[in-house]
Design a binder for these strands. Structure first.
Lengths: 207, 207
DNA sequence: CTATGTGAATTTATTCACAGCA
DNA sequence: TGCTGTGAATAAATTCACATAG
């Protein structure tokens, strides 16, 4: 299930490296050193070397890393090689933005389905994706969708999560500002947007 | 500048506690134990007690915590007592959603200004906020706005950050998927939405 | 000479176990 | 008795320093 002994923080940084490397590759580059990559993505060079070292030897001493090899390696570690579909629940302002968000593609994700409980929205399309009734979430099982994205009001988040789990979802990306309880086999990651902002004054207001 | 010896992880959890406590208070409750609060927000009870203990004695042994006292205490620690204004740059899909996001208010934030470089958007309003030309960012200095939110394409993020810093901003919440370089005195927090999703398969695809 | 890879040292954060107090 | 507060133990992550290899 989880590579043993690999720090979660290392896993957190891998998508950052991957994004940077893909960008560099698109720029025509095919080799890079840990310190150049570090400058580019905002991580110290020894941190990068340490992170890669958990998975074997990716580089060549005295030379650096071959970008293609690193990209392939990180994709394999993160299991990003096959395109995966995700379903969005909650087609409000934030949900609609997520549905149109161009950044998922880079990592091989497609948000292919959307659900809402608002009769006025059901049947409408956003970016060619038809919004379906949230009571039809079970269809995810048939469509083999294993990732759910929650962007509903806090008061509805837990029941949506329950429905997603029942529909066979293995991972939930939760934008609702609340704790969500799920069976241990399901992975929840919560992005608490306001929570980030709430920490700002602590770090910026001196005194 | 920063309380010394306080783990950053403790600071990260404080907004979570605060949100839960406000919710409980609105429900008419005025006292709670660390384990009940922990169940509610998804944190272990000892972790909560430890976190609070860094700032003195908030509770009463054998009894629990007075919710109002905790709320006031956390707000003071995080410096959330005075309402703060923030400015958004980038009024695309994600930016518009952020402008309408109802979750900031809880912590005392107002997104009061918005900027874009698209002539078609400038002058239009979203939620009664007029979108201004990004070249007018300097106005933040006059308006005493000290927080900036970046929701522009990656290619523009760094120059927008530079302009925000020049306009006197002390903290930047960055939704663009890239590293941003700023002077040390400025705090940047990046929310890499796709990066979260990119870690999902690692945790959910067994084998 | 350059840049990786990695044990060891250090720092940071979590977890425990129980003393202390209403 | 019940629940907080905290020193001590453990675990996790970062940082260093340098051996190693092209």
């Amino acid at each position: 299930m989880k590579h043993k002994g690999i720090p979660d923080e290392t896993i957190r940084r891998l998508p950052v490296y991957l994004r940077g490397l893909i960008f560099l590759q698109e720029g025509g580059q095919d080799r890079i050193s840990s310190s150049k990559l570090g400058d580019f993505v905002g991580v110290q060079s020894w941190q990068i070397r340490k992170d890669f070292s958990y998975f074997g030897e990716f580089g060549v001493r005295g030379v650096g890393y071959e970008i293609k090899k690193l990209i392939d390696g990180i994709k394999e570690i993160l299991k990003l090689n096959k395109v995966q579909n995700a379903a969005l629940v909650g087609a409000g302002n934030l949900g609609s933005a997520i549905l149109s968000y161009p950044g998922f593609e880079l990592y091989g994700f497609n948000v292919t389905m959307a659900f809402d409980n608002n009769a006025k929205k059901i049947g409408k399309k956003i970016k060619s994706i038809e919004i379906m009734d949230v009571s039809k979430l079970d269809i995810l099982k048939k469509k083999n969708v294993r990732l759910g994205i929650i962007a509903v009001p806090r008061s509805e988040a837990q029941e949506i999560a329950n429905a997603l789990v029942k529909a066979g979802v293995k991972g939930i990306l939760n934008f609702s500002p609340c704790y969500i309880m799920v069976p241990k086999k399901v992975k929840v990651m919560t992005i608490d947007i306001a929570g980030y902002l709430a920490r700002m004054p602590y770090y910026t207001l001196n005194g």
